[in-house]
Amino acid sequence: MQTEILEKKTIHSILPVANIFETPKSYIVSLDIPGAVKESIKANIENNTLVISASVTIDIQSENSEASKQFYREFSLANDIDIDTVAAHYELGVLRVTLNKKQQYLSRQITIK
């Protein structure tokens, strides 16, 4: 574990800015992670917590050492989220995670007979 940490010099640990947008069917969490490669972003759900982490290489360092920026953020989820259908998409430096609401939590119209 320790060698892994020492391999790259980390100069920043950043909390990405996030917006959460709620629609009738889902929540969309969007985070600013500019300059990341899609493969370097990790998103997982553990113990009802959505964990986003990413490592972005700073390529304009003129010195020989390669530095990187670490992005990290956690969101605790309410129990109305269907964990099996979570989807994530990275585009133009923004990661969007779509968390669908469970069927039983969706609002529905009840027809009156």
Binding site: A18, N19, I20, E22, T23
Partner: peptide, 15 residues
């Protein structure tokens, strides 16, 4: 703004 207010609401807006 990335989303249309007609489709839903922001529950958090930091950007």
């Amino acid at each position: 703004n990335e989303y249309d207010k007609k489709e839903g609401n922001y529950s958090r807006m930091e950007r």
